[in-house]
Amino acid sequence: MLPPPEDVLLLLAHPFGDTWTTLADWMEHGPGPRPLLRPVKARSRLTGEDLPLSVVPLQYRNDGAARLAIERGQLKDPWAKL
């Protein structure tokens, strides 16, 4: 069973400095104007234990595989403008 998104912390790697956010916040806002920003590490907010990146649903990983699947129409773009 996967933890709720608000209980998962994600490390977002950025050239100007890495930052932590919750999976819930990432799912809501995404990379914004930084299209290549993506989660590189996950951990439990409750225990501090490292979690696999698979706790992030594929369409929210913003990695090459996710972007390709979205481009091919296999996944819906979660941050597409309506």
Rank of each mutant, 00 (worst) to 15 (best):
L37D: 09
L58R: 15
E6I: 05
K76C: 10
L10A: 00
T19W: 14
R72P: 13
L10F: 03
D63R: 12
P78V: 09
W26G: 04
A69M: 03
S54D: 06
L46S: 08
D18E: 08
H14E: 03
R34T: 11
L75D: 03
V56T: 05
F16V: 15
D77T: 08
P52T: 15
G64I: 11
L37G: 03
P39M: 05
K41G: 05
D77G: 06
V55S: 06
E6H: 15
V56H: 00
L53A: 06
A80M: 10
M1W: 10
S44W: 10
M27I: 14
W79D: 07
L9A: 03
T19H: 10
S44T: 12
N62Y: 02
V40P: 02
N62D: 00
H14C: 04
G17L: 03
R72E: 07
P78T: 09
G17C: 01
W20Q: 06
G30Y: 12
R45A: 05
P52V: 10
W20K: 00
P5I: 08
I70C: 14
L58W: 13
K81G: 12
A65Q: 13
L53R: 04
R45L: 02
A69D: 08
E6W: 13
G48H: 10
L10H: 01
L11V: 04
A13C: 02
N62L: 01
T47L: 03
R72G: 03
W79P: 05
A24P: 04
Y60N: 04
R34M: 14
L51P: 10
P52W: 07
Y60V: 13
P31N: 07
L68Q: 13
V55C: 06
R72A: 12
E71D: 02
L12H: 00
R67N: 13
G17N: 09
A13V: 05
D63C: 14
P15T: 14
D63Q: 10
G17H: 01
G17K: 01
T21I: 13
M27Q: 09
P33F: 10
P39Y: 01
G32N: 12
L9S: 02
D50P: 09
R45H: 06
M1A: 05
H14T: 09
D25M: 11
E71I: 12
S44E: 00
L10M: 07
S44C: 09
P35D: 01
P3V: 15
G32I: 15
F16W: 15
A13H: 11
V40N: 01
D7M: 00
R61F: 14
R67A: 14
G30A: 08
P5S: 09
A24M: 09
A13K: 07
E71H: 15
L11W: 04
D50I: 08
V8I: 15
R38Y: 04
R61G: 05
M1I: 07
P31E: 05
P33D: 06
M27D: 11
P78C: 07
E6L: 07
P78R: 06
L68P: 12
G64D: 10
L82K: 14
G30M: 14
D63L: 03
L53T: 04
F16T: 13
P57Q: 07
A13M: 08
P3Y: 11
A65N: 10
L82H: 11
M1G: 00
D7E: 03
Q74P: 06
S44G: 11
D7F: 02
A65F: 08
E6C: 13
D77Q: 07
L10P: 01
K76W: 06
D50T: 08
